[in-house]
Amino acid sequence: MNKMEMALHELAEMDELAAQRSPVHQLHPAAKLIATVIYILVVVSFHKYDLGGLIPMVLWPVLLFQVSGIPVHTCFYKLRIVLPLVLAVGLFNPLLDRAPLLYLGTIPVSGGFLSMLTLMLKGTLCLMASFLLMATTSIDHLCGALRKLHVPGLLVTLLLLTYRYVGVLTEELAIMTDAYHLRAPGQKGIHVSAWGSFLGQLLLRSMDRAQELYASMLLRGYHEHFHYAPLRPFRGKDAVYLAVCAAVFVLLRLLPVTQMLGMLVV
């Protein structure tokens, strides 16, 4: 299996994860989507030095991992490319903000170091929340939910078709990479001299396939308006889930929970 086939396999795995059955999977996509957006907004709103306040926010993804049955290592494995980029965001903070902000015993901790940790945790939590949403909701249901929330149809269709196009592009890339390596044994990657024609061919082939897919849609009555897989009605338990999540997130944001817990111990 070449790298592209692995990428394709991982993409298909996301669909399989989303097709599982768990209490989280069975929630209405709109409830999950709104809860995730609120969660991300709350996480991002924490002050750059408020690492303590941010820590209780870890509980929500942990709880979702437990209830949905999605392995935590799957999340980190799938985020392995983007996670280092997010972690790198605050890497220079310790150099820019050196003033000691607190002391761990006698060890001074600079504001830059604290803000770096906060930024890293914020990024990781946001990525985990987004992953959990994608792993428990299929792209079609997600798009259906976006339409229910009155997001413009054109944007939603664009999102869905882009997602599908990534699959088509990766499939073609996998075929071409295999064909290349079978005639270039022992060579690592694609040689620079072939990049131009390789990319050009990839674009042409994937466009041809995308065109045929589009024709297939047109021939089955598609006309600017996409009918997403039917969503079940928004029930009481979805409203309860959303209300509880929103209330807990806001409370965790407003109340110094870690300090209060610390007071109990000290």
Binding site: R209, S216, R220, H227
Partner: peptide
């Protein structure tokens, strides 16, 4: 179509089957 991969563009068989009737 000759290539069924190009015809089946939805995630599951069911979703593919309901695509046309809903559109009509």
């Amino acid at each position: 179509l000759q290539n069924s991969d190009n015809q089946m563009f939805m995630p599951t068989v069911y979703e593919d089957m309901i695509f046309a009737p809903l559109n009509y």
